[in-house]
Structure formats: structure tokens, C-alpha cells
Simulated assay, not measured.
Amino acid sequence: MAKRNKPIHTLQAQAIAALWHALAGRRLTTLWRLARWTGPLVHRFSQREREVTEINLAQVYPDLDPAARRRLARESLTHSAATMLELGLAWMAEPARVEAAIVEVHGRELLDEVRAEGRGVIVLAPHFGNWEVLNFWLSSHFPFTAMYEPPKLHRLDPVIRRGRERMGASLVPTNPRGVAALLKALKRSEAIGILPDQEPSWGSGVFAPFFGRPAYTATLLPKLVARTEARVVTGVARRLPGQGFALHFLPADERVYSPDETESATGVNASVEAAIALDPAQYQWEYKRYRKVVQKLEGHPEHESFRIY
């Protein structure tokens, strides 16, 4: 069966890569128009994305009017569609075009000050706006290392890896060898990137509040801080629809520096919340952020209120 599926996967990868190549030359106004057409279709016909997005929004914004939450869900899926359509730009367009699309940079001094002190800087990069544009800018301006896990469609791996590394980023695996590489980069006073809003595997995280509800959160950050005295900032590339991107670098919540893993994870989630507040529609709400709470409480009917998926 695996051999039979091989040609199909190859064709899928080739078609996706060809689409990215075709879109790489399009204007941002065109890409945004396509997203505004695609997003509502995803909301209407993709039950999984619609339901998870609407459930998450009901959890984090319980006081928001239901009609307003539905509008926010549609807007969020439109921004997610825009991110997918912009991957060709971030990975394949002429670097000068991508640089020109970054029309604002706020808080760069946070990065410069830390590096001037001879410390490494950890950039928390949540799934907000277009994080691939953020990667492009960071790896263009600083020695930059980030963890990388190959996509499920393995034949896209060389395309994605080439796109992410083209400005000098160093990609390391999501295993102990990768963690060692992150530590070395920080000790060289370089920048590294961490995705703070992906659920880690069991044993690699703790439950910490995210918008007031427990979410399983990675504990890699306090380990890196304790061994390197690095400083932490949150970084996002906020989309300015049809115009470009505004980069925002924000001071991380001070709790991220706590040696207590739960306290540090609470600070990480608070930092993500602060970034989301810039424009909640640009966050990727279709990710099951509270999934492990459901797994943990399965078989415990007294906790039925936590069963959100």
C-alpha cells in the first residue's frame, strides 16, 4: 500500500510546490483577494477547521457575542488561508521583494540590546500572522537557529527546508541533538526561535493556564534560560492585508525566567496571549491547543466541562 501511494504523494508534493512557485510572483493585494475568497470556503466546507476554531474561540472569549465569534472564526480562517498562499513569497520570491513587504519593525531594540550584552536571545514565535516572514527577517539580520520537524508529506521536505534556510537560518531536529544545538547557539550570543504554542509530547511539558484554561505547555524554555542566561522576547509578523507585514518584538512575561517549570510555562502562555491581543483574527485558532486536557481527563465524567473537543 505504501508503494502504491508513493506516486500519489509525489504528485501532491509537486502540485503544492508548483502552486507556491506560481504564487511567489503575485502581488500581496492579489494574495489577500485570494484569501478572502478561500477563507469563507474553508469555513463553510471544512468541518474540522470550522468546529475547532469556533470551539477554541468560545473557550477564550466566552463573553463575546456568538455572532461576533462566528465572524472572528471566519476572519481567522481567512488569515490562515492567507498564510498558506504567502508561503511562496516567504520561501521562493526574490529576497528584496520579501524585505520590501516588511514595512514596519517594532521593538528591534530588544534584540539588539540583548546581543550587545553578550547574551543569546530566545524568540517565542507563536502561530500568528505569517511566521515564515518572521523567520525570513530574523535569519536575514541575525545568526538564527530553529527546530524543524519534517512535514507529513515528506516529499515537500526539501522545498520547505530550502525556503527556511535560504537566508542563513540553521534548522536542527526536534530531539536532544537539536536542543544541544540551541544551547550552543545561545552560548555564542545568537538568536534562536521556539514555537511556544505547540503541544509537546507527554513528559516534555506541564499544564499551565492559557486564556484561563489548562493547556499542556513545553518546558524547554526554562532549561535553556537556566543554562545560558538568555533573554526572551516574543516575535510575530502581523499581516497588513494587501500591504505587507509589521514585525512586533515584545518583552516576554517576566515569569518565563522562573526556575519553576509551571511558573515559566505560565509566563510563556501569557506572552503568547499578549501577541494575540495585537489582532486575535490572525492567530491560528484551528489548532487543538487544549487536546491533552481532554486526553488526561478521559474516563472522568466529573470533569465533563473540560471536554471541549
Rank of each mutant, 00 (worst) to 15 (best):
I160S: 03
L156G: 03
G244H: 13
S139W: 03
A191E: 02
I308L: 15
Y287H: 08
F144Q: 01
H43D: 04
R27M: 00
L41Y: 02
L250A: 06
K184Q: 15
M92I: 00
S139C: 04
I16E: 02
A93N: 01
V172R: 02
E104I: 09
G242K: 11
W20E: 07
R27H: 10
E132A: 06
Y290P: 04
E75S: 11
Q282W: 06
G299Y: 05
Q12P: 00
F136M: 06
F45R: 04
N135G: 12
A281S: 15
E261G: 06
N175D: 14
S80C: 06
P173E: 03
A185T: 09
A73E: 02
R71K: 11
P66A: 08
D260C: 07
E94F: 01
A68T: 07
T262M: 10
S258Q: 04
Q284M: 15
S80D: 02
E273N: 09
Q59T: 12
A93G: 00
W37C: 13
D112H: 08
F142M: 00
Q12F: 10
N135W: 13
H154F: 09
W91P: 02
E132M: 10
T217Y: 01
A270Y: 00
G235L: 08
P241K: 12
I192Q: 11
Y283S: 07
L11S: 07
A100D: 07
R227I: 00
L186D: 11
P259V: 10
E149G: 09
K223M: 01
P95F: 09
W37H: 14
L31H: 06
N135H: 08
Q12K: 07
L156D: 04
L220T: 05
A15N: 05
S258Y: 03
F249I: 14
G212H: 11
A101D: 06
P143E: 12
F128A: 06
G25K: 01
